[in-house]
Design a protein around this nucleic acid. Structure first.
Length: 424
DNA sequence: TCTGGGGTCCTAGGACCC
DNA sequence: TCTGGGGTCCTAGGACCC
């Protein structure tokens, strides 16, 4: 059996764990730049606020009534690690799937006591972190997702729902579930399924896998097998390094100034380089992209990207920043107002692998110096706070600085902010 | 004024090879 | 009029996830 543990309204629950006054109130957490609502408490959902709703389009009455907070990723990331540490006490086989969801393997466990085990897990997580979670138990990941969904929606389950491969309960649940609620099926696929008169999860389960593969894809075929209780989806190894690294942000407000773009690209490239070294990789190419605001009607639109190959795989911030700057210069267009830009590090290789190549001794020495320098930079930024050491000239009061006016203190990772709570 | 950020996998089609 | 057949590799774009 597999369990899917999913934190309820995770970002909101993290905020509530440290601010009990938010209990019972409609609470929302906003995306970067305070752009849209990305997490909602049940009370806010009840007011009809959709996932992803733009903040500036919310009716004034709701804005007055609700507590809307900027996202506080330092807090959520730390809480997520705490939850996972507790899960590991309940099974050695824990795969963190996203910031608020983990799969747990229970092979080798007696299947009878599993619901009670899951209940104890819920209570422990709640007691030790303040985060409420629901658990779905099933023989496959897709069914565990369905079970989790049911555990959340139907109070009778008390937070734990177990779904076996067959049986009337499974059938009833799947018959009442639109295909779009399934993991891996979204609007496009659902539209095409509807043409074949397949609307519910049960109808999809009964479809012919071979035909599904021919008409759709191997992805959807796997979902059919999983609905039947036969495991067909393997998660990627969590430990495996990322295949590409992206850093991008929207600007706080539109800008047409080359200097703003330059500064943003520099910051994104530097952050990407940190991530790259953090996972022990090197990049063989750097991609820069920028675009105007597609929602802005009447405004001149432009989007472009450029890939800059590197002469040799690198994790040196200076080389990556220089490549990114060249890419930006190649695509920057005068006279438009940009909304967003970003940097992607592509074609990643393990840093260890090519060190044994026959580089000239001088290059080898340079590489050694570069590695020591980068390691020192990363250590300082880790221990003294991000941006302690930066590349290029510091610019204060950047025109496009990110908006996050409603952020709560980083309770679990910053002593200074925690103290402010107590004294302030 | 104001609409997120970061990933993955798969497929189709072109280039190229023999 | 008729212009092979099969393989690999790469890339762009689609679809999906949270």
């Amino acid at each position: 059996m597999i369990a899917l543990v999913d934190c309820n309204n995770f970002y909101v629950s993290c905020e509530r764990a440290f601010a009990p006054r938010l209990e019972g109130r409609p609470v929302g957490v906003l995306s970067n730049n305070d752009g849209c609502v990305v997490a909602r408490s049940n009370e806010l959902k009840a007011l009809g606020v959709a996932m992803g709703a733009p903040l500036h389009l919310l009716p004034p009455a709701i804005r007055r009534q609700a507590v809307l907070l900027s996202s506080n990723y330092a807090l959520y990331g730390d809480m997520s690690r705490r939850v996972n540490r507790i899960l590991e006490e309940f099974s050695p086989d824990v795969e963190a799937y996203s910031i608020d969801e983990s799969f747990i393997g229970f092979s080798g466990f007696a299947t009878e006591g599993l619901e009670a085990h899951a209940q104890r897990l819920r209570e422990t997580v709640r007691r030790d972190t303040g985060i409420p979670v629901c658990v779905g138990l099933a023989p496959t990941r897709v069914l565990a997702k369905v079970a989790n969904h049911a555990a959340k929606k139907q109070a009778a389950f008390e937070g734990v729902c177990r779904l076996d491969a067959d049986g009337p309960a499974t059938r009833a649940l799947l018959e009442g579930l639109p295909v779009t609620e399934l993991w891996g099926v979204a609007r496009r696929t659902a539209e095409r399924l509807a043409l074949m008169e397949i609307h519910t999860a049960w109808q999809l389960r009964e479809a012919d896998p071979k035909q599904v593969r021919r008409r759709f894809s191997v992805v959807l075929e796997r979902i059919v097998w999983e609905l039947r209780g036969r495991p067909a989806i393997v998660l990627d190894d969590l430990e495996a390094p990322r295949q590409r690294i992206m850093v991008s942000r929207s600007f706080g407000r539109l800008t047409g100034a080359f200097a703003d773009l330059q500064e943003a690209v520099r910051q994104h490239a530097a952050r990407g380089a940190e991530k790259l070294r953090g996972q022990g990789s090197q990049a063989r190419a750097v991609m820069v992209f920028l675009r105007t605001n597609p929602h802005q009607v009447g405004e001149r639109q432009y989007r472009n990207s450029a890939v800059v190959p590197l002469p040799a795989p690198s994790d040196d911030s200076r080389e990556l920043l220089a490549a990114a700057a060249r890419g930006l210069a190649a695509i920057f267009l005068e006279g438009v107002r940009y909304q967003k830009c970003g940097v992607m590090l592509l074609d990643l290789v393990e840093a260890e692998r090519h060190q044994l190549s026959l580089l000239a001794p001088r290059r080898e020495a340079e590489r050694g110096r570069s590695q020591r320098l980068m390691a020192a930079v990363d250590r300082l930024n880790r221990e003294m706070g991000r941006d302690t050491v930066r590349f290029g000239l510091p610019r204060t009061g950047t025109a496009w600085a990110l908006r996050c006016e409603r952020r709560t203190p980083r309770y679990t990772t910053r002593w200074d902010e925690l103290m402010r709570v107590r004294t302030g």
